[in-house]
Design a protein around this nucleic acid. Structure first.
Lengths: 251, 251
DNA sequence: CGTATGGTTGAGTCCGTTCAAACTGAGTGG
DNA sequence: CCACTCAGTTTGAACGGACTCAACCATACG
């Protein structure tokens, strides 16, 4: 599968220093904690890029040459077993960080779900800068801690929840994530319609289910009046309270 | 359930400054990166303690007043659903860190599996010190990153592996963890007998299985000549190659 | 030696999977 | 405009791996 580094990166123009100033996700990334001078040094390691849907960003096991910030679109990270079984470890949306690793190789693969724009950092150079910037180290530690909490919640889901509880948890976490990123007053911030940019197959591989079970469970929730499916990738949440009950396993 | 903080802590004598000098796990913790002066400041926030088996160290949702280093024994961390379903998120052995959280509340519960000794740190005071010590910040970020990798591997296990693959993965990861902590030449470092201090119920709740399936799968591996069960809590690895094949899902 | 607790084994069940068929909607071309 | 294709989704029917329920066994302990 084509790697983004060789195939797409060089086609995208470097937008220059001003790009960061207009960055929509700036205040959700480590860039927000940088002084003007440090910001300039970080920008020197950066290249903004746009890629189409279903493009490989990096692959597990390959040397981690770059780090990425998602500035728009959706990206999935996943691990594979030799026989092709797949576990999606997370979905990254605008503002999320990708490819952080202590080892020198990526520990998951990453592929875009939708067309996406990414901020690509040269990893060795950025890590050298990080060493000199305690604020950034701190920001990364906090990000890692949040990801770890999410991972532990996902373990509970994968180890102990039923199909219906998994789907409910997934929908609620998408809702919460959207709320965390939008001001309450902002347009769409409290809308009950949820975009599901990923396929049923992706949802299944994220929740430890098959596509058929995902589909059946959506239908089940629809018949129960908890959600309405405007179309295959847009779910309207009709009864959020009930959904949250289901999600935490108390029916 | 009895909390360690109120019930056990005060019975254990403070061993004074010299305790750290003899600490067996010192070089595996953040203490190893401290200068002598910083070490003294950290020690002022610390109290060593010993607790019996099956003792609650902290509970999910409760204010995170302390952080812990395990100096001996085994501790499990877990999350519960309202109806009692449990997911063990990890086992902590000597040298492992417990209770790290960005939020002000613990995100998992922790309970000893065996009698254990712990180094208890006052969290607010330690975090204040960490802010002034970039080395420690770095060490914590690295630890978090490693835990995140382990969590992602556990997601793959819980979402996509069969019972036999889960048990095999569990045994292999215990072997690897022991190897990482012991020099090859040291006694017991290359011994093929593995201690399983945790109950079948704990193993099941860690691997997303029931105790019956755990027990059956051990018997299955025994019949296949992959392991030998000296007793209920000691497994001898007879065919490590085969076990590693099973663990990664390629049979 | 009786009791208790945890572990093992067996039999039957069930939830989610597998296999298969039908449906949907977007894209293409006559 | 409709027919056709194709990939993704939904639905149905049968299956199976892990679960549930239950009995039995082993070790520890008073």
């Amino acid at each position: 599968m084509a790697s983004v580094m060789s195939s797409v990166a060089d086609r995208v123009p470097v937008l220059g220093l001003s790009a960061c100033d207009h960055c929509a996700v700036r205040d959700r990334t480590f860039c927000s904690v940088l002084s003007p001078e440090d910001g300039a040094r970080v920008r020197a390691t950066l290249r903004p890029m746009s890629v189409g849907a279903h493009t490989t960003v990096f692959e597990e096991g390959e040397p981690a040459q770059y780090l990425f910030n998602v500035t728009s679109g959706t990206v999935k990270t996943y691990k594979l077993l030799p026989d092709g079984r797949r576990q999606i470890t997370g979905f990254a949306f605008a503002g999320d960080f990708l490819g952080m690793t202590v080892e020198d190789d990526y520990v998951t693969s990453a592929e875009t779900v939708t067309p996406a724009s990414l901020c690509r950092f040269d990893r060795p150079r950025l890590l050298k800068l990080v060493d000199e910037m305690p604020h950034m180290e701190k920001h990364i530690a906090v990000t890692l801690a949040h990801e770890l909490v999410a991972a532990q919640e996902q373990m509970l889901l994968l180890g102990r929840k039923t199909a219906q509880e998994r789907i409910a948890t997934f929908l609620v976490s998408l809702l919460r994530r959207r709320e965390a990123y939008r001001c309450p007053g902002r347009p769409g911030g409290d809308c009950s319609t949820l975009a599901l940019p990923m396929s049923r197959s992706d949802i299944g591989d994220y929740l430890g289910l098959t596509i058929e079970t995902v589909s059946r469970t959506f239908s089940q929730l629809r018949r129960q009046g908890v959600i309405r499916l405007a179309d295959v990738s847009h779910a309207e949440i009709l009864d959020r309270g009930r959904l949250e009950c289901l999600a935490q396993g108390s029916h």
